[in-house]
Each structure stands twice: as structure tokens, then as C-alpha cells.
Design a protein around this nucleic acid. Structure first.
Length: 511
RNA sequence: GGGCCGUUAGCUCAGCUGGUAGAGCAGGGGACUUUUAAUCCCAAGGUCGUAGGUUCGAGUCCUACACGGCCCA
């Protein structure tokens, strides 16, 4: 069998150990291939001293480790020059080294922070360490004469060897392409990147905590779907070999989640990836993370209130405040303006039911409307172009035309307007919500309406889903549902201008 | 898809109207027991994104392509 699942017999050289120099520094950053019996690459490769003896096997664990931040906090209590307290063990990356002869200062960084190690040769012996090496250290909290919180090391052991030069220790990794392609380097040397990754994790867990505490159950629905729906978007298409059928990567979780409401789960949510086969921008990625929730016996006004509470709660838990600075604007996520879509368009002189008139007014404003074939499309274009970019303060925009919203219930006083809202921060849409349409027959009519929009030339419409209509025919309680872009919320909370800064591995062309 | 900008040492960046490529950091050798972008001495490091073209001569000018960024659709 050619496959190897960890069997030792499969290893070409069972005694292979990492090549290394035993000089003061390692063999440099050349990448020597696996070599038998610990031998270092031959002289032709110019890879450090050929006479280096093999390095001892590195430890497989480093127990009883504490966070660097906690040791630092303890050291900060000391007077300059003091060295006192219980011994602690810390581990992390060596990111700076200042040699003073028999005394060496090392900066050690872990996820929690940075601390200086005081390494005296009489205690630790000579240090064979390069920048980027992973080490474990044991020592006593100390403060140097200059007051730097430190750990006076009694022992330092190598846990993993770095064989490549690190990015510039002052400027870090600046090249945006390299930061995305080699995110591990970005995280390693750029503290802000590490902070953003950790912040995103706190955002997601705060969302879960809120929803779990309010009686929602987290569920998982299919990513591979025989039909796609729940949004206006191009899907990624794939093929299921065993079923011999094309499948789609989901563009939304909506229709499956509502089937669960039909089934009586009452309050459900899912946090997961959606896929839309479209270009990228500061707020778009083809693969992104979406929260959707559905709450039985609630309408869109209840959903507005819950969204406001959730966002404020998450901001408070993650940042300790509901204010944030996003794209140059200071914003308070604890206070949302509510604005009717009709009034928002009217403010810009763009509210009219007359298609030709709306087209004229847009063209007067030098908007190219030749791709907009229906009144609803023109409204959508007007919104995108004039209304949304102006919604800087947190704003709930509500009551949408029925043609744009095939899953929302009509308002009480106007059957052409539905109970739907989208909410915006810094001119960017965070999400979309409505009082869910729960009448099977009306849902079938809405799909038919989408078909006629499509025949009229509307590019983005909802394809029908008979299976979903059948689910509704069993009766779905009145329900409020909402989608929230996790990446975008994280952008706002982290104060990042581009979605790529809050997605660890953004989509890039293969090189 | 269109326009503009970028691509030089592992990283961060210089490189003028065309005249055989530079620095700092990292890496190598050495000195130093309170440094923190440590400092000092020595040596080394490049197919200037790729492929063509113009020219006596191209990192520099021209064309195409690749990758990335910004703006527009």
C-alpha cells in the first residue's frame, strides 16, 4: 500500500532529526531537506557549518505554562532592580534578542502579550537561539534597572526551530499580498493582526452567548444544496458524483432554517459560511460568514429590537463600549435611527411610483439606468447609489417594495410594501430582516412574481422552490427572521476598512 | 470587464533626464552583565515580477502577460 497513515515503517529515515548548528546561532535560514542520520546538507548547498552535530530531539510538551500577560502583570508590581516571587513557566516566540556578552535580553511573545527574558549565561548556559524560535522558559519575575518588566530565566529550552528569516522586526510585514498569502507571518510579527483575529473570535462567541441565553438553538443546515435560494446572488456550482447531479454551495441558510420553524424548533440560528460567485470589494468576499436567526411568534419590529440589543451587547462585551470609529466616523452602536425607505428616497427626491419618472430623475443625476428594466430595479439602484452610502450613523431602513422582497409579509396599510428592514453602519449594510411570509399560497405567488420580474429582464431574482412552499403548507407560525454579516460587524467593531483584514485567509488568485 | 498605481536582497525601503544595483533590519563571524529599533568591528547577500522590443548600453523607455492595491461597472 502506498498510502501512509503515520506508520513508522513509512518514514524514509526513522532517525532523521532536524539539522542544526551547535554554534552560538543555528545554521541560518536555509531549508535543508530531510537528511538521514541527522547529517546536515552537503557543502554544495552552503547551508551552515557542515560539522554541526545533530540536535537533540525537541520536547513534545511544555507543561505548567502560564500566560505571559500574567507574569508581566506580576513583574510590574516590583521596584526597578527587584527580582522576587514564585517561579513561572512561559512559552512563546523569540521576537527580539539583545546580546550583552554574558547577559542576553530576549523578547518573548505569546498570544497574551510580550515580556523580556533576562538570560544570564551563568544560569542558562550559552543560548543557541534565532529570532522566531519557539522556546519555553522558567524564571522569577523581575524588573530591570530601567524598569522593564521581565522574567529572570533559570532555564530556557528550545521547543521549535525557526529556519527562515522573520520579516522586519521594526516594520513587520507590510506587503498586503504577503500578509494574506502568509497570514501566519502577519500574525507572528504584526500585533494588530493578532488582535483582530482574537477580536473576531470574541465577536462570534458573544453572539452565541446572547442567542443561547435567549432561548435560541444553534443548528446546522446543508451547505451543498440541490437548489439555491434566500438571496439574490450567483452560486458556485459543483457536482455530486454519487447522485449524478449538480449541486450549489449555499448563498443563504434562510429556507432551511424556516423549515425548522415549521418543524417546531421555535427559535433557531446558524452561523456559517455562505458562498456568492461574485467579485470582491472592501465589503465583499466570495466566501463569508453569516448569522441567520428565526424567531417564532415575533415580527420585524420585535426583530429590530433584538438586533439592536444583540449588537449593543456584543460591542459592550468585545470592546467595553458601544462606540467605535469606522471609516473615519465615530459611531454609537447603542442607538439606531429608524427610517422608512419611502422617506429616505424622498429626501433625495427619488420617490415615485412612476417608472419613467424615476428613470428620468436618475438619469438627471448621471446614473446609467440601461441595465434597470423594472421600477423595482430602479428603486434598488437609487438606494444603492444615493441612500445607502449616506447611512453613516447606525440606521434601520424599513418597509421595502414587494418586488424586492419575495419572503416578507406585506404591511397592514399597503399591500405593495412589505415588513422588511435592512440596517446600515458607516454606509455599509450589516444585514437584512423581515416578518417572514408564512402563507404557502402567497409564497407561490411571490415566486411567480419573481419569474415575471425575471422575464421583464431583472437580473437578480429568486428562483422558485416547490419543496419550500410545501413545507409552508403545513403551517409556519408568524416568525421574525434576520441575517447579519459577521465579517462586516467585525470590521465595524475592529475599526478596519476592509473585509480582508477580518478574514484570516481572504480569497486570492493562485500564484 | 474598464481605468490608474505598484512589483528592486528573506523583510522595510532608496535608486534623478538610460551609463554595469544601495541602505537599515534579519542571517554569518567577532566584542560586550541592564539592553529594549541596544551598540561597535568584519565578511556575505540580487535573473531589479515574467517574456519580448527599442538602444552601443535598460531597474529606468515601449509592448504583452502574471500577481496585488485603489476607483469605476
Amino acid at each position: 500500500m502506498s498510502r501512509c497513515f503515520g506508520s513508522r515503517a513509512c518514514k524514509p529515515h526513522s532517525s532523521a532529526v532536524p539539522p542544526s548548528g551547535q554554534g552560538r546561532r543555528g545554521p541560518g535560514w536555509c531549508l535543508a531537506p530531510d537528511t538521514p542520520s541527522g547529517a546536515v546538507a552537503g557543502p554544495g548547498l552552503a547551508c551552515g557549518p557542515v560539522d554541526s552535530p545533530p540536535m537533540a530531539p525537541l520536547p513534545k510538551r511544555f507543561p505548567d505554562r502560564v500566560e505571559i500577560a500574567s507574569v508581566r502583570a506580576e513583574a510590574e508590581q516590583l521596584e526597578p532592580g527587584e527580582e522576587r516571587g514564585d517561579a513561572h513557566r512561559v512559552a512563546g516566540r523569540v521576537l527580539a534578542r539583545r546580546d550583552m556578552g554574558k547577559l542576553v535580553f530576549l523578547d518573548l511573545v505569546d498570544r497574551s502579550g510580550r515580556i523580556q527574558l533576562l538570560a544570564r549565561e551563568e544560569k542558562t548556559g550559552p543560548l543557541d537561539l534565532d529570532l522566531g524560535d519557539v522556546v519555553g522558559a522558567e524564571g522569577v519575575p523581575a524588573r530591570t534597572k530601567r524598569g522593564e518588566p521581565s522574567l529572570a530565566a533559570t532555564s530556557i529550552e528550545l521547543l521549535a526551530k525557526n529556519r527562515r528569516p522573520l520579516p522586519d522586526k521594526v516594520h513587520g510585514l507590510q506587503d498586503v499580498e504577503l500578509r494574506y498569502r502568509q497570514r501566519y507571518l502577519d500574525l507572528l510579527v504584526n500585533e494588530e493582526s493578532r488582535a483582530d483575529a482574537l477580536l473576531r473570535s470574541r465577536v462570534v462567541s458573544a453572539i452565541r452567548r446572547y442567542l443561547d441565553a435567549h432561548g435560541f438553538v444553534e443548528v446546522e443546515t446543508p451547505i451543498l444544496q440541490p437548489r439555491y435560494g434566500g438571496a439574490f446572488a450567483e452560486p458556485f456550482v459543483t457536482h455530486h458524483n454519487a447522485l449524478d447531479a449538480d449541486y450549489y454551495l449555499r448563498i443563504a441558510t434562510e429556507l432551511y432554517l424556516k423549515r425548522l420553524i415549521v418543524g417546531g424548533l421555535e427559535k433557531v440560528y446558524e452561523i456559517g459560511k455562505d458562498f456568492r460567485n461574485e467579485g470582491t470589494s472592501y465589503k465583499h468576499q466570495p466566501e463569508f460568514t453569516m448569522l441567520e436567526w428565526y424567531e417564532a411568534y415575533a415580527d420585524y419590529r420585535d426583530t429590530m429590537a433584538r438586533m439592536e440589543e444583540l449588537v449593543a451587547t456584543v460591542a459592550q462585551e468585545v470592546n467595553g463600549t458601544t462606540t467605535t470609529t469606522f471609516r473615519g466616523n465615530e459611531l454609537d452602536l447603542g442607538s439606531w435611527r429608524r427610517l422608512k425607505l419611502l422617506d429616505a428616497l424622498d429626501e433625495h427626491g427619488l420617490w415615485t411610483r412612476d417608472e419613467a419618472e424615476l428613470r428620468n430623475r436618475l438619469q438627471e443625476r448621471e446614473v446609467d439606468t440601461k441595465h434597470d428594466t423594472t421600477w423595482a430595479q430602479l428603486v434598488d439602484h437609487a438606494l444603492e447609489r444615493f441612500v445607502e452610502p449616506a447611512l453613516i450613523e447606525p440606521t434601520i431602513l424599513h418597509d421595502y417594495p414587494i418586488e424586492l422582497s419575495p419572503f416578507a409579509r406585506a404591511t397592514d396599510d399597503d399591500p405593495s410594501i412589505v415588513e422588511r428592514f435592512e440596517y446600515f453602519v458607516g454606509g455599509m449594510e450589516l444585514g437584512n430582516a423581515f416578518s417572514e411570509l408564512n402563507d404557502a399560497e402567497e409564497q407561490a405567488e411571490r415566486f411567480a412574481m419573481q419569474a415575471s420580474e425575471r422575464e421583464a429582464g431583472a437580473g437578480e431574482t429568486e428562483l422558485g422552490d416547490e419543496d419550500y412552499v410545501e413545507a409552508l403548507s403545513y403551517g409556519m407560525p408568524p416568525t421574525g427572521g434576520l441575517g447579519l454579516g459577521i465579517d462586516r460587524l467585525t470590521m465595524v467593531l475592529a475599526g478596519r476598512d476592509t473585509i480582508r483584514d477580518v478574514i484570516l485567509f481572504p480569497a486570492l488568485r493562485e500564484r
